[in-house]
Simulated assay, not measured.
Amino acid sequence: MASHWNYLNAPPTLPGLFVQAALRRKVTGSVLPDEGLRCWVSVNRQQVETYRKVCGFSNTSLMPPTYPHVLAFALQMQLMTAKDFPFPLLGLIHLRNSISIHRPLGGVGQVRVSVHVANLQPHTKGATFSLVTQIEDALGPLWEEDSTMLCRGVQLPGEPAGDFEPAPLPLVEVARWLAPVDIGRQYAKVSGDYNPIHLSATSAKMFGFPTAIAHGLWLESRTLAALDDHLPASNVDISVEFQKPVRLPSEVVLSASLAGSSGQFRLTAANADLVHMMGSWQPLS
């Protein structure tokens, strides 16, 4: 938890934050800020419905389980483009994402969003930290997210922690779909996340990618939409680990264990031996 909170009257605007992110290309330190950001944010139902269509969610009364990330995105951007944040935002790599849904995401009109960073750790390729997001409504905690981010080129004392891998469950194919060449631009319009590596081959090549790659949060969202009848709507922890990127366009295959209170899933390439994403769900710990 952050030691101090900075309360905002309204979410920041994104264009200026992307300019700041583009100008910050160097590591400037190895200490995370201890101040977080908080702000009340209103939910726009039309924007939710557009997001639902791009990510493949069915039309229900519940907000998609990944949509609170969109509500928090501007605050996350402001936190990680501030002068006291030591790592360049556009150089960060999203390794893992975990969300916790405390109550059904229905009838949500206004929420308080809190974001902070924590848990700086050595990694074999640099250093990792957690970007922590908490969503509350008038009744209390509603949704949480812990995104593990990697910054290359940072050296910290100590040994990298080992990864825990649960015993694999039997998986069967449940869906396959095409990630179209323009899905990065479609997702950017509904999420506000205009990271150049997702938008086009030309912009992706500026950051060392031969072609645009699918956004990890879109892959997670599209996967959870396909697993709607497998997972509980609340009281659930969902974790994913991003592995090989999905180059656009590509066909992907989703395999999962049986529906229930806990399970596992895997997203692979349709025509190659590549694992793009692995994940699991379980009751709230």
Rank of each mutant, 00 (worst) to 15 (best):
P170G: 07
D182L: 10
S200L: 07
P168W: 10
Q155A: 12
P166V: 10
L169K: 05
Y194T: 11
S250A: 13
D182Q: 09
L156G: 04
F207N: 06
P166K: 06
A204F: 08
A226Y: 07
Y187D: 07
D229N: 14
A214I: 11
L231Y: 04
D146Y: 02
S203T: 15
Q186R: 15
D228V: 14
A167N: 03
Q243L: 15
A226V: 12
D229Y: 03
V190C: 09
G208K: 06
S255D: 01
V174E: 00
V190M: 07
A175T: 07
S200P: 09
L224A: 08
L169C: 02
P168K: 12
V181M: 04
V190K: 05
A212V: 12
W218V: 10
E159D: 08
E165S: 13
K205G: 01
P245K: 14
I183L: 13
C151R: 02
M206Q: 14
P168S: 13
M149Y: 02
G158P: 03
A256W: 03
N235L: 12
A188F: 11
S255A: 13
P160L: 11
E165V: 15
D182F: 07
V172R: 10
E144I: 01
E144G: 02
L224E: 03
T211N: 10
R247I: 01
T223C: 15
